[in-house]
Design a protein around this nucleic acid. Structure first.
Lengths: 347, 347
DNA sequence: TTGAAAGCGCTAACAA
DNA sequence: TTGTTAGCGCTTTCAA
């Protein structure tokens, strides 16, 4: 029953030409290879007629390239990553590349498996948000001359291109904004994770407070217990112990989400009374009541940078050791949650 | 500079055995093919030593199978789809299949391109949430004997396996629950989309109200304008025109999200006073204040059904015409938003 | 201007 | 028990 799909050879036989001719026409090299107009038309018409689909697996095997790049992130259902993914996809498409998405879930084993899978499938390039412990695989890719660009975080030990955010500056902007709005007892709620970006955000907060002669007040939630319930408990506890805070700066968007829930469970009115802001935007925050102030990563820009580096590497096979580290600045999106409260003295 | 990755042939040469032997060992057919224990060990050790990665493209070309199935949904960053995706992936993995994710964004052109891309890459099977206008591609896949299972929605004109939800019953359960909690002026906010599942939800609502001698009150928002702003406007308008409603049933989770924002903008207190429930769960709803009652699709069950059908088709190439349509039932998840309000008379 | 043929890396039928 | 070899569908060099 299985109708075999026609191959180039089948077509050549029907048309009584060689496979070479068909291949040239198929790849738009007809003119270049000086094949006669009429033959080109004849072949093209037939290809269209039978709705011929080349076997890309065979082509990849032959050319050693798949014209596919993979975009490997922590979680593709995350707002930020999925947005960036679309941008990357568009740019890739314009350059005749396709992009495959996958989620590591910050799981080293999973990420390793994924890299291996795509490597075996001759993928042309990798854009990776690296989980910890992925160094060896990345080194392996680079040694195999496969273009790799790291995104969102770097790997300390490996010299590889990357696009990241200026986390320190972002945190500074948030803290400064809250201070300008009149908040003077600002807490910082973060995750106990040994990632450079988290450290930078914390430094931004601590330094800004110091500059304004304010005492930092930190809550670090252990990463391994950072689920909805544990966060809720930790944050509620923190609120009880620190009844005098007037504002909270969450270091990630998901912490803010958990935090908002904890806040409203603990005391309905608190959300309106506290100044609230967090790092990294999310569709949730625009819809929440009050809408939440965030520091948003510049999605278009980062996507463009990512593909800029990637395409460059893809096209200049020789030049692949010239590593770039691009650092973007984001934008503070001021919404209701961080504005001066009515109960507060005006400046 | 490019170190070519070693091929089977290279290995055979180094080991002074034939490629056949290496191939058999590689694929775990050593025993079966009666290759001596020591040779097997020797080959295996060497494969491990050089960390050999077979070229899966070549294997696919030869075998005609890629052991990859694609999961094509409307939006992979949607909670429901990404959850289902993980379930499917796990089951696939256990059966030595990998799964590739992609989003159609309900865009016909995009979906067509995606199907073509994967078809050309010899993907073994498709699980698809079909956007409108995708009939021809699906038919084409089936004619090529490629397993296809539809998910979440069906295509009327094509006879193909599917896994869907009992939308009618779900809507009935939500409406009945709200009525039991004492709400008697229930509005239904939906999207003006010609999808069977939407019609079914509406029928569930209308029928339940009729059964309880209640008048239906519908707001249908045009699909093409269903962005945050337009929804906000439409819903606010609706609230103004219908000040006497005591509860709202949203037909999808994203409508509920827009609706909640509109509600709180329009009148802070309304969210606490109205009974609220919606179709299709979302992480947002558990965290919202009040938490939102939803009708959740049975994710594990649907994922299992999907892969059950898919693996069956993959394994029984002959039996592929036996089409199945599985209909799942979901669960009503009762949260704060739909409970009897204090201001209401008790039953 | 077109065609013949080699070969990408792998599997598997057949031979030895 | 192991090896030889054809061939999957395509691209591309070289020859005609």
């Amino acid at each position: 029953m299985k109708k075999k799909r026609p191959s180039l050879k089948d077509i050549a036989e029907v048309l009584k030409v060689s496979t070479t001719t068909v291949s040239f026409v198929l790849n738009g090299k007809g003119e270049e290879k000086k094949i006669s107009k009429q033959l080109i038309t004849k072949v093209e018409d037939y290809l269209k007629e039978i709705n011929y689909k080349p076997n890309l697996v065979a082509r990849s095997l032959r050319t050693g390239s798949s014209r596919v790049i993979v975009f490997m992130v922590e979680d593709i259902s995350n707002y930020f990553f999925s947005k960036i993914g679309r941008i990357i996809e568009d740019i890739a498409y314009q350059n005749d590349y396709r992009v495959l998405f996958c989620s590591t879930e910050n799981n080293t084993k999973r990420a390793q498996g994924l890299i291996q899978l795509f490597q075996e499938r001759q993928v042309d390039g990798f854009i990776i948000v690296p989980p910890i412990g992925i160094e060896d695989e990345v080194i392996n890719l680079i040694e195999n001359d496969t273009p790799v660009v790291l995104f969102d975080r770097k790997i300390k030990s490996v010299d590889v291109d990357s696009v990241t955010l200026n986390n320190y500056e972002g945190a500074t902007l948030i803290a400064e904004h809250l201070i300008e709005e009149g908040f003077s007892k600002m807490a910082f709620i973060t995750i106990d994770l040994d990632l450079l970006q988290m450290k930078d955000r914390m430094r931004g907060y601590v330094d800004t407070l110091a500059k304004n002669n304010m005492e930092p007040l930190l809550l670090e939630i252990p990463y391994n217990t950072a689920n909805a319930v544990a966060c809720n408990t930790a944050i509620t506890q923190f609120l009880i112990e620190n009844p005098d805070i007037d504002s909270i700066f969450f270091s990630t968007n998901y912490l803010a989400q958990y935090g908002l829930k904890a806040l409203s469970n603990y005391n309905e009115q608190l959300i309106k009374k506290l100044g609230i802001a967090c790092f990294d935007d999310n569709i949730f925050f625009e819809m929440y009541s009050p809408s939440i102030t965030t520091f948003a990563q510049p999605i278009e820009q980062m996507g463009a940078q990512l593909m800029d580096i990637m395409l460059d590497k893809l096209n200049n096979k020789e030049n692949k050791t010239a590593n770039k580290a691009r650092v973007s600045n984001g934008n503070l999106i001021i919404r209701e949650s961080s504005l001066r409260k009515e109960s507060m003295p005006s400046q």
